[in-house]
Design a binder for these strands. Structure first.
Lengths: 147, 147
DNA sequence: CCAAACTGGTTTCATTTGTAACCATTGAAA
DNA sequence: TTTCAATGGTTACAAATGAAACCAGTTTGG
């Protein structure tokens, strides 16, 4: 093995990125084809569906998005009347976001599709492989968040 | 556990993407700060450094990039005089790309930095965790490529 | 042969993204 | 209080991206 050569094929950052990109691209077909959502929009929908009510900042933290992405996604979902904003009582900078009936319906429709996608993906692995990916990803997440 | 709720925090596509995004973003600082390269440019440099000579199509396959990304990255590296194109003898559509001395020097400078980055990342994991991530990623790669 | 389909690579255009500046409001300090 | 730093969120602008059209040049089938 040449020391001054980098094997892209086995370089972890590259492999991780390519893997995530492929998986995410395939999954995105689901919400893109069904509702024409972008990834930030899907994450916003998903975050609010899961938690009920959140501020834009919280959304950004929960779903690892830059605040401009959140802002744009929220604006678009609002335009579709999938969510509403309610000003905070005490702090007039803050808005509490929540899904409307329509937004919730879309969310409820997406959840089983998302779960099925994940199930199918993991279904191709052996039990040990599933354990391995879960453990490995968790470990890396752990090292990254504390910094 | 509510069946009609999706926990983003434990949803594999999301976790993978976030992880890869974080790692890749951090790694990108290295080639961005040092040479002002974009990711496609870095991958092009890295691919040619590793293999010596490649066509644009091969580059795209090796580094999982859309052909327009390759085209643009190659154009930029050529502008910097980091690579040259040599027309194919038999097929005049094809160009063989190779790094110049300058390009190779940049590559040689980057390789140890890339390796150090990976080493440091993996260094925070236990041996079992390293095995787990390697195995898990390989398994998922396997399921995705055969389709 | 020769048209039609295909392939390597580039370009155009619309969309998405990131950075930085920005506005309004709030909290803390003097 | 007044001022100044910090915070929630939006906007403007430049750069990166993807889809589709495109321009050679090449292969294939009739």
């Amino acid at each position: 093995m040449e020391p001054d050569i980098l094997e892209l094929e086995s370089f972890l950052p590259y492999r991780l990125y390519r893997l995530a990109d492929t998986v995410s691209r395939e999954f995105s077909r689901i919400y893109k084809e069904r509702h024409g959502l972008t990834r930030p929009e899907w994450r916003t929908l998903s975050g609010l569906g899961e938690r009920g009510t959140m501020t834009a900042t919280e959304l950004g933290e929960q779903s690892a998005m830059h605040k401009t992405k959140v802002s744009r996604a929220v604006a678009e979902l609002e335009r579709r009347r999938w969510l509403t904003r309610k000003p905070d009582e005490n702090d007039r900078r803050v808005e509490h976001l929540a899904l409307t009936k329509t937004g919730l319906a879309a969310y409820r429709e997406m959840v089983p599709l998302a779960k099925a996608f994940e199930r199918e993906l993991l279904g191709k692995l052996s039990v040990e492989e599933r354990v391995a990916i879960a453990r490995g990803v968790a470990a890396l997440e752990g090292t990254l968040e504390r910094k």
